[in-house]
Structure formats: C-alpha cells, structure tokens
Nucleic acid binder design. Structure first.
Lengths: 262, 262
DNA sequence: CGGGACATTGATTAAGATCAATTTAAGTGG
DNA sequence: CCACTTAAATTGATCTTAATCAATGTCCCG
C-alpha cells in the first residue's frame, strides 16, 4: 500500500469526481507528516510517528497508517477499543444506534480529528465510524498511549483535553437540538463545516458536502425532506447557493446570525 | 460551618419539607467519608481527603468541603477552572447559555457526580452549576490533580474515564433529543433519574424531583406545558403517579419500553 | 390567610413529519 | 459515448405533534 503519493498534494484523498478545491494547501514533499510540519496535529506527543525534532519517523510496522475506503467502517460499536485514530485525510461519520434501532450521526469528523474516544469509558466503542470518502488514519494503539503517559505528563494532558473537547462539542450540539428550529440547525451545521474547512486551509465559502441529506437529517434530529426544504429556503433568502452537495455561502453574516451558538 | 451532623443520616442535605426517603442509606458514623467507605467515590485516587487505607483524612484546610445553598451557584460560565468538585450530597443543574441567550440545562448532577469537567478544555467553565437544594461538594484543586498525575497513572486514567463518561452521557442525550417524542423523552429522563437514585441507595420507584417543570423542559428541548402534558398522559396510561414533584413509577416495564435508549 | 411561584389544562396555531410523486444526477454496461 | 439503472434530492399535499397564548388551579411560605 503506497499512500504517500496520493497524499502529496492535498488534505484529502480526492476521488476523480471531486477535484481539489481552489485553496487546497500543498505539502512541499510527500515525506514528512503534513500535520507535524504545520503544527496542526492535535496530539503530537501521542503520535509515535513523530520524533522529538518534529519530523516524521518511519512507521515501525504496517499498522501505523490505514486507508479506509468510502462506505467502509474504521471500527464498529461494541468492538474492543484497542486503538485511537487520528484522521489524517478524508472525512467520516460516527453513527450511534440504540437498542430500539434508532440511529443518529453523532459527528462528522474531518482531517485532524481524533477518533475512538468513545471507547475510553468502557473499553468498547459506542459508535461505528464510517468513511464518507476514501480516507487515511494514523493508528494510535491505546496501550502505547497509556505506557507513554507514565513518562510524559504532557501526553496525558493532551488526551484529557482532546476528550474534553469532544464533550464540549456535544454539549454545544445539545443546545442546538434543544432550542433551534430546522433552518437555524442547518445554518449552525454549515457554520461548523465552514469553520473546519477554513482551519484545514480550504475556502470557508465553497463547500462540498461529503454526506447525504439523510446523514445530515440523522445528525440534526430532523427528516431529510426538512433538510432539503431548509436548504431551499436559505437559497431563496440569498444566503446560500445550493447545487446538490455543492454549496456556496453568499451571505456569511446572515448565516452567522441564524446559526450562531457560541 | 458544621456539616458533619447533617450528613450523618442520609445521602443529601434534607430540607425540612422533604424528609429522608424510606430506603435512604445510613452511614455508621459521621467521621469517615461515606463515599470512600462504600466504594462509591468515582475518583478515590484524585481525592486528597482519602488516605491510602481508604479512611478519610482530616481536611488540610478550609476549602476541602463547601456547602452550596439552594439557588446558589458553585461556579459560573467563564470562571477560571481552578477546581473540580465532587458532589457529595444534594443535587444541581448545569446551565449553558449561548451568545443569543438561548438556554439549556445540560445535566442534573446528583451525589457522586464530578463537576467542573466542562472547564478542562479551555481552562474556563462552559456552564453555570446551580444547586437545586442545599448541597455539599468536595473541592478538588485542579493543580493538585495535575501534580498528582505525575506520580500516579491510575489517577490520570480515572480522570480520563470520568471525562469520557460525561461525553458518553451527552452522546446518549443527543440521541434522545434527535429521535424521541415528548413522551419518550420524559420516560427516558425518569429512567435516568430512577437509575441514579437506585445507585445512591434510594428507591428507584419513588422519586422526588428537585427541579421545576421548566428546568426539565430546558433539559429536554421542550416547553414546560409539554412536560406537564406528558406527565399527565403517563399518569392516564397508569405508568406513573404524579403529584407535582412526587412521582411513583407504577409500571417500570412500560416506562422502559417507552424511554429505553441504550 | 393571603401572596406568589409553580403546575395544570384548554383552545388555537405553526412547524415539521409523513406520504407520495417527480426530477436530477451519477454510475454502469453495452 | 450513450442509454439505462439507480441512488439521491426536490417538491407538493396533508396530517400530527408540539408551541403558543391564555386562564385557572394548587401548594408552599411568610
């Protein structure tokens, strides 16, 4: 498996139908870890790929990186939590299913997200993580992290913060589901996506959604028809241009006014 | 301030209007920490009150325990997160307010809950914690925890799990808000309360709610009238007996069927 | 024995769910 | 490369649920 070449030019594994977006960042060379190089790795002290000088070490064995193709799952609810994963490129959805079969998408992780934290409490994952496009993850064996935590207090603190960050994300989403109407939820959702695109170096105005309307609906506690109608209304209000999964934000201020939550 | 006597006989600081419930646990003596003694402290390795032999040490200074009277706040959103708190007795509500003034109750901590985890990510609390009744907390200075984490890997893991536990709680609540109707939400809420009462040694069938209908509504993303109507319908269905804040669960199976989420 | 906060109940309205029919676009294979 | 197949998205009509507005009831507390 040779993934280095694929990753050289952009932050995601592009499939042919979705060419790189205008502002996609370029790594100077395929060799070093892009995240370590740009300081965007959220857990540098947890990653065994990174040496102290910040340059990437060679993977010591075959499991350090893993490609997940579109539709495949990285891990499933109930699996033993032996690894955390850093999403290096691509995007995923985290699905929760309860005993009655009700389903929700808890989040849509993008490049830079730490995956698998939902397994820490009980030792078994609560969610199933499914790739929305061909994606690449760094594998962080949990036993490694624990071992490393002995010597390195910073590593522990980073993990603490990463989990706390996820908690806060859900707390905010909770507020959205508890108090916003459909249009505001969609606005809030798009602001979140837009912001994360921006921190990944993409344009915050031109979005290409990787998920279906159904996925969005399951995420926001609405029905897919309602999602579609909300998009239509935002388009009529000249806040968005919607062409299926291609969105452009025409009026960011209005969008913020609608969906702001912090 | 002498709280030892008040705490001797029950898990909460009873106000005169609410006498101890039938199955309230009894501590043999006011001196040892009830939670340490019964093994119900979720973070024994983080608590400076507990010596290695499991018996309570004397508080080394005045800030080790704090009483919060009904309606008072333990900490407020935006305050610097210098302490975590273990809720030793009583109950609280955690309020989030966003920039637009929308409000939600994120959770209703009861005895045994760890409070203040919402401050770990940024160093400032995200929520305001307000006592629903006179309550008592153990103060856990955050700096202590960090210092202790160097020598004690278990302490770190306990903190990790505590945060992850909170995350999972919100994840589940998210599913409730995203996919349940008003009656199911109330059922789920009551099951949660009931279960926590049971783990505190109280009857899971006889509940005395400490929060208003409005608080419940803010927690579950509904309006207080809808909460009231849901209670009425559950009573008509002979699942509950409702007399204002005094509830008895007549048909636990039916309640589970309605509100089960994991 | 009020006064005021809290809770319940009723009538009406509005938002979103549901059911159903198209429309659009993206693959797929000849 | 184009017709075909299918998944995804949009749109419309109707129904249900919960929100809203308003009045009344109940209980706790001074």
């Amino acid at each position: 498996m040779n993934t280095a070449h694929t990753l050289a030019g952009s932050g995601s594994l592009q499939d042919p139908a979705h060419p790189p977006q205008p502002s996609a960042p370029r790594a100077p060379s395929p060799t070093p870890c892009r995240m370590a190089a740009t300081g965007t790795c959220p857990v540098p002290d947890l990653c065994r790929n990174i040496r102290n000088d910040g340059r990437q070490s060679l993977p010591v064995n075959g499991i350090d990186r893993r490609t997940i193709h579109r539709g495949q799952s990285l891990y499933r609810a109930g699996d033993a939590c032996v690894n955390l994963y850093l999403l290096y490129a691509g995007s995923m959805k985290q699905r929760i299913t309860n005993c009655v079969g009700m389903e929700q998408i808890a989040s849509f992780p993008m490049a830079g997200a730490l995956l698998g934290l939902d397994g820490i409490e009980t030792g078994k994952y609560m969610c199933t993580a499914i790739a929305l496009e061909d994606s690449l993850v760094c594998v962080l064996p949990f036993a490694d992290l624990v071992a490393r935590s002995r010597g390195d207090p910073m590593a522990v603190l980073q993990l603490n913060k990463a989990i706390a960050r996820e908690t806060n994300h859900y707390r905010r989403l909770l507020l959205v589901l508890a108090s916003m109407n459909s249009e505001e939820r969609i606005a809030n959702f798009l602001l979140d996506i837009s912001e994360r695109m921006a921190t990944s170096g993409y344009s915050p105005r031109e979005l290409v959604l990787k998920m279906t309307r159904e996925d969005i609906a399951l995420h926001l506690g609405m029905k897919l028809e309602t999602v579609s109608r909300a998009f239509t209304r935002l388009q009529l209000a000249r806040i968005l241009d919607v062409r299926r999964r291609h969105l452009s934000i025409r009026n960011p201020e209005a969008l913020s006014r609608l969906g702001a939550s912090q």
